[in-house]
């Protein structure tokens, strides 16, 4: 890793936001599966990242998405929540040897099994909060749950694709 980690993080941020707003949002598989691939901003960060900084970063990211989707607070709330639990999740699924210093969360560094476990659980929690805050009722519980599950799977695969296609270069 030659470039500074912050430069990489910022490039990642810009790339994912543009990709999401310009393209990925339009690849929704009507009316059940939507991709909220911007959550990759959180997933692709290094393991060691300031916890408070992370929450503020995701709060800002959520507000940006709220402005785009006209849903004040919904994305911000879900993003802050996943940002809060990410360190706990990382602790819970520490590999047997522990994390290496400055290690990232990519498939190459941590292996597909670890990456899937990590990304899918965070995506699932994020989408769960997102869809239930959006519906704001348990009226159509079944429909909302189906949306949550299918969208989480969909987002997971899109992010896995992005990760495998573009993620390897910097290492």
């Amino acid at each position: 890793m030659n470039s500074s980690p912050y430069l990489k993080i910022i490039l990642n941020l810009i790339f994912l936001n543009l990709a999401h707003l310009l393209l990925l949002d339009h690849l929704a598989m009507a009316p059940f599966a939507y991709s909220f691939a911007y959550i990759g901003v959180l997933l692709f960060l290094p393991v060691e990242f300031n916890k408070i900084g992370l929450m503020f970063l995701m709060f800002g990211e959520g507000l940006l998405m709220d402005a785009y989707y006209n849903t004040p607070g919904i994305h911000a709330g879900s993003c802050v929540f996943v940002a809060y639990i990410r360190p706990y999740l990382l602790d819970a699924i520490t590999p047997r040897m522990g994390y290496e210093a400055n290690s990232g969360c990519s498939v190459k560094e941590q292996g597909l099994a670890w990456y899937s476990m990590y990304s899918f659980s965070l995506i699932l929690i994020h989408h769960f909060l997102l869809f239930f805050l959006e519906a704001f009722s348990f009226d159509q519980l079944g429909l909302t749950l189906v949306k949550v599950l299918l969208s989480a799977v969909y987002t997971y695969f899109i992010l896995l694709f992005i990760e495998l296609a573009f993620g390897g270069k910097s290492n």
Binding site: P72, G73, A76, F81
Partner: peptide, 8 residues
């Protein structure tokens, strides 16, 4: 989270 809920 409080700010988000307030927005919602």
């Amino acid at each position: 989270e409080g700010v988000s809920v307030w927005l919602i």
